[in-house]
Nucleic acid binder design. Structure first.
Lengths: 221, 221
DNA sequence: TCACTAATGTACGAACCAGTACGTTAGCTA
DNA sequence: TAGCTAACGTACTGGTTCGTACATTAGTGA
């Protein structure tokens, strides 16, 4: 995230709206991800900031809107990563694998994002619904998938006639679950899905799974 | 769940420890699944019960232990379903598909269970760790998968040499995500993954995916 | 340089909420 | 049938937590 670090001279009151706002967002992201929406404490967020609780209400209006802003930024980050993806020079099989790995890597690097999304789902995605920004912005990943699928299906490489949204769900499911359910899965089955030593194993497994699905001979249709 | 419905004659105080305990568990399951751990209100649980808050503390000790008891029962339900599964008469391919469908069906029928597990993950699976019962009981599904995999790999039908835990993770990921992330996914991509009209579609997709993965020709090894 | 406003800080209130002290009664058993 | 205990109810408390009223100052534009 875009953490702001400025040498705060003690006793001096420096005014910087953008910095204060950004700092609140940074800390709020951590706190919400740590404890969930209701478990998060506004006072705790303020305490980890160089400003006071008053500023949270000044800039965001309330806990609810703060969480929405946190979500907006977190989704913005993954969208940026997706936009940077360039797979037009790859053949469909390699392109799909690359895309899947991007999702895999992003989810692994941003467990806070995963937690925020889990939390938002517990609350019925009401903050996304309340956010204009989140409704507006589409998904670059979906566009990429659409193009790869079209190419793969046209060339006959891909036998499955899935649509982009479903394929995105399949990829996301694997990547998301690995991080989101790490703790219960580990406690129940004694295997840490996010163990760094197993990282390449699962990354390959995801690619193999998606490619196998897309290229399998259909027995009967 | 095992809801208990007894005609409560008004003004009369009927004593039934088992019924009271079960009723608290029923209501607590709903309340925790609805609002998350910190969002859930002990008073609210009590209010939807024919008894009082005092009884929650009498039987369970506290909010924390109540949530643990709720989790224990929820996991018990899926374990029972898994134990009923009999796939020994099926060939490996059909057997794996049947097992995947069992998970699919259970997750779809028990969204509360999914929410509880999501909530438990937000809290680092600390309640599972604190529960003797949950640590003790293994997973019948894993045993089944192990047997099917062994048969499939021996007969040469399965080319992938996955292990049971990983395959279980793959199946669970798809089934879990579909329910757990229903709201954010729906809000962002405009597709309801739990739409009844799409049920068979996703159920087949899951089976196709798993079978394709297990039976794909490996290009290089 | 003066005045105005955006930005910030302090102190507090009102509601909420987990947990408990204390009192009561149903139903079993000796 | 007496008495004992498991099962239950009422009423309250102490701490917490979101939110705000009110006061203050930094920086900017006229």
């Amino acid at each position: 995230m875009t953490s702001v670090e400025e040498p705060a001279r003690p006793g001096e009151r420096i005014r910087d709206a953008a910095r204060t706002r950004a700092e609140i967002l940074d800390v709020a992201t951590q706190e919400f991800a740590r404890a969930g929406y209701d478990g998060a404490r506004v006072d705790e967020i303020a305490a980890h900031t160089r400003t006071t609780k008053r500023m949270i209400y000044y800039y965001f209006g309330g806990k609810e809107q703060l969480f929405t802003a946190v979500l907006e930024r977190a989704y913005g980050v993954i969208r940026e990563a997706e936009q940077q993806l360039d797979v037009d020079h790859l053949d469909p099989v390699a392109a799909i694998r690359r895309l899947a790995e991007l999702t895999f890597d992003h989810h692994e690097r941003h467990p806070d994002f995963i937690r925020l999304v889990s939390i938002e789902n517990i609350h019925g995605a009401e903050h996304i619904a309340a956010s204009e920004e989140l409704g507006r912005m589409g998904s670059p990943a979906l566009d990429v998938i659409r193009r790869i699928l079209a190419a793969g299906q046209e060339s006959g490489l891909f036998t499955a006639d899935v649509d982009a949204v479903d394929l995105h769900a399949m990829i996301s499911a694997f990547c998301f679950f690995r991080v989101s359910n790490r703790h219960t899965f580990g406690a129940l089955f004694g295997r840490d899905l996010v163990d760094p030593a197993q990282r390449e194993h699962y990354r390959a497994m995801l690619g193999d799974m998606v490619i196998a699905f897309l290229t399998a001979e259909r027995t009967a249709d």
